[in-house]
């Protein structure tokens, strides 16, 4: 056991080894790994101390409102920007190395295409840049754009352009596909067919990471949801787990001398937040929490509030600061109440 643990430690220390052939089959690196990553633009902290590990074959949604740090996170994973601190690795390599090997592709929401090239020329151009690539004709038919192959990109509809972007992203048969708000501007039908294509594709073992601000989209298509709020990962779990966390009720009470240690054994609590003398406990079984607080502690002024899932999601991700449930942050905000 000790030898195994030592081997594991050595293995984890050699994560920076960039030659993929150096990896034995059973110890393949994570698809994405963020360790203590922060990013700021001037005084604005876009990403704060993010830790994230994506295994191969997962479909993961990064969910959050605009400005939560989704794009900044994705940009660092794609090597488009560098973290101020922390480490980003993709398939055990630096992002740029993974991209140069065709292991990572991305579909952006708008732009990224030359209007004066035809659809076929755009595919030819991109295909020629990879060491190995799918044949151009195959990529066109795979994305259902063979009929418009000779049309200028500038004359294609938004949906056609998105299919072209998708074709480009799959040319190199990437291990990781990153989608940034991929369905913005699509109608319901377009959205559905887009996601069924992605789903089908991911069944072959491709890792998919997508950013969205639609709760239902993350719910319907992701195996796992990473919730971002003001640059911080506030929740990470399956859709069911996130929903359970976002549902339920909040119990609020005044409790002098409250500490996280004291509140650690509250039965059924999903999260606990302490703001000065105010304690906020989020739970599905709010009765049990209320009973505990009133019988086992000196809590007073107890208040129980319920909310809908949309409200809960907004509270989890909103930036108003009046949200009642953040996981384990426990920061004291003076004067908030």
């Amino acid at each position: 056991m000790i030898a195994l643990a030592a081997a594991a430690i050595i293995q984890s220390m050699t994560v920076t080894n960039t030659d993929p052939r150096a990896w034995p089959a059973q110890d393949r690196p994570l698809a994405v790994e963020l360790a203590g990553v922060s990013k700021n633009f001037g005084r604005v902290q876009a990403v704060r101390n993010a830790d994230l590990r994506l295994r191969s074959g997962e479909i993961v949604a990064i969910l959050g409102p605009n400005g939560a740090g989704k794009t900044s996170t994705i940009d660092m994973i794609l090597g488009l920007s560098q973290p101020a601190s922390g480490r980003v690795s993709v398939l055990g390599m630096q992002p740029r190395q993974a991209i140069s090997r065709g292991l990572v592709s991305a579909v952006m929401q708008t732009g990224g295409l030359l209007k004066d090239l035809t659809v076929r020329e755009t595919v030819e151009y991109t295909a020629s840049l990879f060491a190995q690539s799918q044949p151009v004709g195959e990529a066109l038919s795979g994305a259902g754009i063979t009929e418009i192959a000779d049309r200028r990109v500038g004359k294609c509809s938004g949906g056609e352009q998105q299919r072209l972007r998708f074709a480009l992203a799959l040319l190199s048969d990437p291990e990781l596909l990153v989608l940034d708000e991929p369905t913005t501007g699509m109608d319901v039908e377009g959205r559905r067919s887009f996601w069924s294509a992605i789903r089908k594709d991911a069944e072959q073992g491709r890792t998919v990471l997508f950013a969205t601000h639609y709760l239902e989209e993350a719910d319907a298509y992701a195996d796992r949801i990473v919730l971002l709020r003001q640059g911080r990962i506030v929740a990470d779990g399956t859709a069911a787990e996130i929903k359970a966390m976002a549902a339920g009720r909040t119990v609020r009470a005044t409790l002098a001398g409250a500490s996280e240690a004291l509140l650690a054994d509250i039965p059924g609590a999903d999260s606990v937040e302490i703001r000065g003398e105010t304690v906020l406990v989020h739970a599905r079984d709010s009765d049990a929490v209320a009973r505990y607080l009133l019988t086992q502690t000196v809590a007073k002024d107890l208040e129980i509030t319920a909310r809908g899932i949309e409200d809960a999601f907004l509270a989890l991700t909103g930036d108003t600061g009046s949200g009642t449930a953040t996981t384990g942050s426990g920061t004291a905000t003076t004067g908030a109440f």
Binding site: A25, Q97, Y125, S128, L129
Partner: peptide, 20 residues
């Protein structure tokens, strides 16, 4: 599910080619 990354290499000449 474990990706096979062997045989994945960057293009020659940084991707420069006649098609482009």
């Amino acid at each position: 599910i474990a990706p096979d990354l062997s045989g994945r290499r960057p293009p020659a000449l940084g991707g420069f080619n006649v098609t482009v």
